[in-house]
Design a protein around this nucleic acid. Sequence first.
DNA 1: TAGTGGTCTAGACCACTGC
DNA 2: CAGTGGTCTAGACCACTAA
Lengths: 263, 263
Amino acid sequence: MSEDGGKMTSLETPKARYKQVAELLREAIKRGDYPAGSSLPSQPDLARKYSLNQSSISRAMAMLRSEGLIRTEHGKGSVVLEVPTVKRVRRIDRDYRTRPTGSSFAEELSKEGRASRTELVACEAVEAPADIAEHLRLAESEQALLRKRHMYAEGKPVQIAASYIPMSVAGSVDIAMPDVGPSGMYARIAERGFGPVRFTEDIEVRRASEDEASFLNITAGQPVFAILRTAFDKADRPVETCLNVLSALQWKLTYAWKQDVSS
Amino acid sequence: MSEDGGKMTSLETPKARYKQVAELLREAIKRGDYPAGSSLPSQPDLARKYSLNQSSISRAMAMLRSEGLIRTEHGKGSVVLEVPTVKRVRRIDRDYRTRPTGSSFAEELSKEGRASRTELVACEAVEAPADIAEHLRLAESEQALLRKRHMYAEGKPVQIAASYIPMSVAGSVDIAMPDVGPSGMYARIAERGFGPVRFTEDIEVRRASEDEASFLNITAGQPVFAILRTAFDKADRPVETCLNVLSALQWKLTYAWKQDVSS
DNA sequence: TAGTGGTCTAGACCACTGC
DNA sequence: CAGTGGTCTAGACCACTAA
């Protein structure tokens, strides 16, 4: 706290008062007065402090919430979130072999010295959602093997991953049984004669659903990356597609590749 | 209009009323009752229609605004925006030669049968912003040649592009003088001995500034892609970096590449 | 239970727009 | 000028959380 020791902090009116309150709180958070994980003062307290109505304070909080700075829980209060903006590196060049999609999640993080953990949430044959089915060119009612994982970095949830493989490619659910990483899956697929040689990644930004927000520890409606990677074999048949969902405001994506201009 | 012909539409209270109003308007927009470009009814009108206070209606509008569905102008009203979600394709494979970064903006669009236009906004030597300077590894106070463009698809603004080239690479401002596309620029740079062979693209999502929102015809604070592509020459020296800003909710990015797993 | 945040009203004032 | 949206208040009620 630098200049707001007293009870009264009169707000002038070049801008809306609730915006000024949001501004002050935003600065206080950046300054470290309210470190990540700590709670902001209650709305009645803030209302008294700034001589404002609770409604106005509530609007200020809504603003910070929509900026992804805080997370509010009914009956409890508002806690400050972390805004790490970490890099997620996906390399695309000729050096990659066994992991043609970029290194695996765990490896990317450990390279940066960050502990990580992956949790298998589901592994079963399902009817794929429409957009997935389209990418995999699934026939009517053809099922796909779904492997859904939750991924954590240093104990904190960061990504939801759902991999779909046509049952005609997977053969049976057993292919994923001794739990293996994505590179392992590609090896299994290759053994069955569907080795991937071409990849596409569609990057979309959309608003997080309630479920996604709850797991990722953000507020519903905040933008998330929905990255859909599809692998094709030599016959240009889609053999796997994987949907990754992660907070768009907290991660950067990096693509890198080499290219001879002369050739 | 399906079920709201009358004046009264009583709102039950499983959810907040302003959310229900937002929901109804959202559906009406999707249904086509309010086509893109048209205005919604005024807030007093809506307040009367739903027997609500103007404040509540205002909250509903704020919600639609934060979803990128409408754009509100003070004293005028709220107009419905378009939500195209068009694909922007960036290919990364060995077929690309003169345009190693993916085809040029104009070409991508024309491939989809969409008219496009590029407007040169600035072309001058400047002090580069800190993050740009870092990517270009600029020495203290070394200037860079800035080429800033505004890009339109079918008359509508879609992208802001700012290319920076170290003056030591560009030689002089003349290099960009007869206005050329990005491929042309790479050719010029190559003639001067700095042909790019390696590229990185950093994809970040952040909230649009007032200026960006104004040009892109979205609301300030809406998420935008900030894509920073950097080109390196054989000596691994950064020779150009280009920042593209475009609405994240209206565009998809696609990366595609080939990869021999066997090799 | 007391404290928290979320919603809503009735009424008010202001700033901006267009005529 | 009238009409628009943006803000704010005072007070109220509710739903949720914790002790």
